[in-house]
Computed example of a mutant assay.
Amino acid sequence: MTLKDEDGSGHDRHAVGAAAGSARIRQRDVEAGVASLTEAITELETTRGGGGMNIVFGAARELRPWRQEALVAEVHDRLLGLMTAA
């Protein structure tokens, strides 16, 4: 993602990535959704934006039907790591 806040900081990138991930997951494009969520999680690891956490976790909940897939398990593992580091 290359979207940035008006101040150029990029703090909204995690929210945009998670929203894009949700949209792709709803369209059943799990790989693209996971890719967007992965980018959003990477951004959250540096910014720790509270609102972004809610959006990313909401998007991750939409992955439940695919929870046995390796890609989805990796996302959930990263989210657990994000929670323990917070």
Rank of each mutant, 00 (worst) to 15 (best):
F57W: 07
V16T: 07
F57S: 03
A40W: 04
R64H: 09
V72N: 01
L71M: 11
A73V: 02
G81S: 14
L44G: 07
D7I: 01
E62H: 03
E62P: 00
A20R: 14
T47R: 02
V56M: 00
V56S: 00
T84D: 10
V30E: 06
A32N: 08
V30A: 06
S9R: 07
E39N: 07
E31G: 10
L63P: 00
A23I: 08
K4E: 14
G50E: 09
R78T: 12
V75S: 04
T42L: 02
E69A: 12
E6A: 15
F57E: 07
G58C: 05
T38L: 09
D77I: 10
R61H: 06
L3S: 10
M83R: 08
H76T: 07
L79T: 12
G50H: 10
H14V: 11
T42W: 01
V72I: 04
R61I: 05
E6F: 12
R78S: 12
Q68M: 06
M83I: 05
E6Y: 11
E31I: 08
S22H: 03
E74R: 06
T2Y: 04
G81L: 09
A40C: 13
R48T: 12
D5W: 09
T47Y: 03
T46N: 01
G81V: 11
D5F: 10
I41S: 02
G49K: 04
G21P: 10
D7N: 08
V34D: 02
H14T: 13
